[in-house]
Design a binder for these strands. Sequence first.
DNA 1: CTAGGGTTAG
Length: 532
Amino acid sequence: MRMLEKSATLLRGHFSRRIFTIPTVTLNRLISDHLRREDDGLVEARRIFNQNKTSLDNPTWNMMITAYVQRGLMTEARQVFDQMPVRDLVSWNTILMGLKKTRDPETVLRLFIEMRRSGLNPDELTLPAVIDTVSGSAFKVYVLQIHTLAVRLGLSLSAYTGSSLLRGYTSLRDLRGLERVFEEISLKDVVSWNVLIMGYMRIGFVGDGERAFGEMPMRNIITCHTMLIGYIDNMEMDKARDFFNQMGQRNVFSWTVMINGYVNGREFEVALLLFREMVGSWRPSHYTFSTVLKACAASSSVLVGKQAHSMITKRGMACDVVLSTSLVDMYAKSGDITAASLVFELMPVKNPASWNSMIGGFARHGLGAEALEEFEKMMECGYKPDQVTFVNLLSACAHAGLVEEGEEKFMLMGRLGIAAEKEHYACMVDLLARAGELDKAERLIKGMPFEPDVVIWGALLGACGLHSCLELGEVAAQGISRLRREHPAAYDVLCRVHGEKGDWASVMELRRLMKITKVRKQDASSWIEALG
DNA sequence: CTAGGGTTAG
């Protein structure tokens, strides 16, 4: 084949755009062989493709689009698509399915309308691309319109199109729609059933999910995972565990789902125990490790964290961005900022989340200057900071007492078009109040576009305790008690403030109240305790 | 020549 290609190119050079052309069949074979190659034959395929554009048939054009779509290169895919002399149904389907991944409902809808205008009718592959893009976006209402179209074209009978309609009605939380679409499918396959169960579970109808599970004529392991995830999402951890224990077949995925369920339910010890049980007979995936590292980070279990890290290293597991970021975060949250920084610096690919973990790590270690410095590097490297970046940055400033820098970053956030959320205000209140700028903090709270929450009042209250400011402290404490009746920290700080002022009568009254309402201080946790 | 369902980080 290579020989043929070489001589063809040679000949084409000599007979420059004269009568001699390579037969279309040969070119198609040549291009598809390149695209099938394990190593990247794409560049070579594109070269041959470009030289022979005028004599290629549609399947070859479509294969070229597919090649780019599979690699996620949508700009290139679009380029080829736009150059096509005649776009057929496969071309449209391929480009629409590719665009699904970009989560750009406007473009997808525009293209879909353009396709209809060109006189082509969608088939059972076209609609899922459109439906899946609009569901879960602000354009979900289109699901109903597309369903109507599907019915008119007889496509709602298809299991393939039907499953995307099921997802569409799930995103609308429309139980009746979900069931009606399911009934419309003429030949229900295992996917139809699985997606139906997923729909029931997502909308919160666990019982209906269980009923469908009992009724279905065929099952596979994905059915079981759908049930498992359904239970976990509905916080039915006991049912999930029972189901998991009874599963006839399990794989790495099953274990990961179960472990992740416990992590999300904040049952970190159970999660780590299950992980230990798992490694006896399974090789965890990078999904497993990420979720386990999250558990380690949240419970400051450095020991298990380090074990996980060495397992990853020892078996030469590909450490992707997500996994590396989990490592950085685990070390940062369990107190080893040096290790965190080391892993972070060695990361070949970073993303905003990675930077956030690093900056957040510096913040929690009180290293304000380092956090600010890392933020500058992040900007220099061209990464876009987001809300999380600024929460970390502002809390770094708050912990390090960098008032001016904090105010500066707060304004920068506005200039970058990132809306300040409650958490940002909480950091700013903390920052200002701690620095003794209590009036400024109070004004900030009054100017907020939402009601202050416990965290914000708490930050103010804490600082009032620090600066022995009784009047404002009481405003804050009242704010808290309006939101939550018994809040131990509020009583605690108020006692201190009153005590410092020598207002012992108030202190006694508070202590009495605490006894009556059985208020207890919240449990503290430390890195030392969690080391085991 | 296009093909649907299940998991990860800040």
